[in-house]
Amino acid sequence: MIQVKNLSKSYGNFPALSEISFQAKRGEILGFLGPNGAGKTTTMRILTGYMPPTAGSAKVAGFDVVEESLEVRKRVGYLPETVPIYPELSAREYLRFMGSLRRVENLDDRIDEVLHKVGLQDRSESYAGNLSKGLRQRLGLAQALLHRPEVLILDEPTIGLDPAQIIGVRELIREVGTDRTVMLSTHILSEAQQICDRVLIIHQGRILAEDTPTNLQSQLAGAERIRVRTSSDSKSLAKLLGKLPDTEEIKLIEGGVEVSGPPGKDIRPIIARTIVEADLDLLELSASSVSLERIFLQLTEEQNAREDSE
């Protein structure tokens, strides 16, 4: 459904995307995970026909995004990062405007259908400008779904929402993702893991990793920092754990240590055993959630190492 080959985009001299390639199959939910400035929005704008790439090619639903831009745009539903609404239009008027531009058949029925789907059926006469951030996001999603697109492209669909709204929007995405290809961007690792079938990690305009969330998780297990607190003091604990072959980077913290292990390996069992065997009381053993920065750091280091050895 989406085929991207060696896609590059520069703003002036600044390379925002460098030769990225990936694919998404029909019915797949593809996550685009990366920190701010990684090039997520740029990629999506190219795929939706908003702007052409500097080099490389991309096909969406079988059509080239540059040569057959209008055909692509007919088949894509897009929710930009800042939800584009016209504040003076009601939700229904807004959808009627977009739906008529897109030649949606039986428009009024279809509008009721999507309003229902995104849970806005009671707010159809509210002005878009008066809707809360979460409801605007839903309205934007309704607009993206209106013409039954084969491909749905959502740029940070949960950004700026409160936790309850985030859960609602995520559920909605999973639901609409059952029968079409969805590509969504996020800078939240757990979000990509929850919603997506496959995740691409993008950083500084390059794709660093591509895998299923489960594989990615285990691949990144070493990026977790394990917090250990015992009845002993920090220093002797650090010495004890330092003897283990798999502990890297031991940091002293209040009442204990923080350690990280090698990529792909969970070192918590061995730590627990060591402490019990040393006859200490284990007070805390927890994995602090992986910070995205650490993942990117790790992946970039791995990549640099690979490039050096080549």
Partner: peptide
């Protein structure tokens, strides 16, 4: 961005 990513 909305207008220019519609088939227009």
């Amino acid at each position: 961005e909305l207008l220019l990513t519609a088939p227009v």
